[in-house]
């Protein structure tokens, strides 16, 4: 339906494409060095704390506690300076593989569900509610929801929420994460979709498409960058969460998620905190891979054709 349109745009856009190619060649325009320097400076600033963790994760426990991590650079080849012991301890600690799998089991469906429940056509009462709900502290929701899961709910003897025996199942966690993730999803995506030119939708309507078709064929494809952004956040949030998973799954070893396992490593009095540095890097690996692989969706010009309508 919108094919004809896209064709039109391509034709119109041709000179522009040429122009942007020109830009690619004349790379260091005025201000080019400024751009590069600023970016490098900010990156260095952001990396320093993480670098501390990385260095510490490869040093032995006694050294970590007796000298600053930056001193490792002063004598990098000294014997006994570097070790992979922290990683070994972190990996050995009680079924890390299993909790990795559990984390995946929690993360993937939670992300997928949040996606599919996204609502794009909220009006503003719903919108107000959603913005307001962003502020609900998770901790306040845990007890009532756990009670719901375990006991169900009745109001004047009518079953309002059935006793589902959800507690201790992954399903309980997926649903909870979906619920908690919804406000941000609705808020982010409504904004993005609201910014799509209404002219495309109008013309699709004139072509006879119904809401459902418009939604799946037009809006979803156009929203890919926003969807990718949200996917990353939902994934991260669920991946790094230990509270929700702990509360609804329980602390049994067979269902422990990665972050819970790692957080427990430190010990209640904090005596093994250097183990956590390696643990932090282990648990960071997957989110970073997700981030990288979703990069290709943050591309320029998805809505290029849209302007003309």
């Amino acid at each position: 339906m919108s094919l004809a349109q896209a064709g039109d745009v391509e034709e119109a856009a041709e000179p522009v494409v040429a122009a942007s190619q020109g830009r690619g060649v004349g790379e260091v325009r005025k201000g080019g060095w400024f751009v590069l320097l600023t970016i490098v400076a900010v990156c260095v600033l952001w990396l320093i704390p993480a670098l501390g963790v990385l260095v510490t994760s490869f040093r032995n426990g006694d050294l970590v506690n007796t000298s600053g991590w930056w001193t490792a650079f002063a004598h990098p080849f000294q014997a006994g300076e570097w070790t992979v012991e922290n990683y070994r301890s972190a990996l050995d600690a009680g079924g890390l593989g299993n909790s990795f799998l559990n984390s995946l089991a929690v993360t993937i469906p939670s992300t997928a569900y949040a996606f599919s429940w996204m609502d794009f056509r909220g009006r503003y009462l719903l919108f107000v509610t959603v913005v307001g709900l962003l502020v609900v502290p998770l901790q306040m929701a845990l007890i009532p929801i756990l009670k719901l899961y375990v006991n169900g709910a009745t109001l004047f003897d009518y079953v309002v929420f059935p006793q589902l025996h959800l507690n201790g199942t992954f399903l309980a966690v997926w649903l909870a994460h979906t619920g908690f993730g919804l406000p941000l999803a609705v808020y982010l995506l409504r904004n993005y979709i609201g910014s799509l030119p209404s002219s495309i939708i109008e013309s699709a309507k004139i072509d006879g498409a119904d809401h459902f078709t418009i939604f799946w064929r037009l809006i979803v494809p156009l929203s890919v960058p926003a969807l990718a952004a949200f996917a990353i956040f939902q994934f991260l949030w669920v991946w790094n969460d230990l509270l929700v998973a702990y509360v609804f799954l329980g602390g049994e070893r067979s269902v422990q998620v990665l972050t819970l396992n790692l957080a427990n490593l430190v010990g209640s009095r904090g005596e093994n905190w250097q183990l956590l540095t390696s643990a932090a890097f282990i648990s960071m690996a997957l989110p970073l891979i997700v981030f990288f692989s979703l990069q290709k969706y943050f591309v320029r010009g998805l809505t290029a054709g849209a302007v003309k309508g």
């Binding site: 990156c43 991590w69 790094n240 956590l276």
Partner: peptide, 24 residues
């Protein structure tokens, strides 16, 4: 790569972040 570096702290769990800043 540049964006990943700024994004990096988001991937650290909170327990990890607290250790990170203890080192600062």
């Amino acid at each position: 790569v540049a964006k990943s570096i700024i994004f990096l702290p988001m991937a650290i769990s909170f327990a990890g972040a607290s250790i990170t800043w203890r080192l600062i």
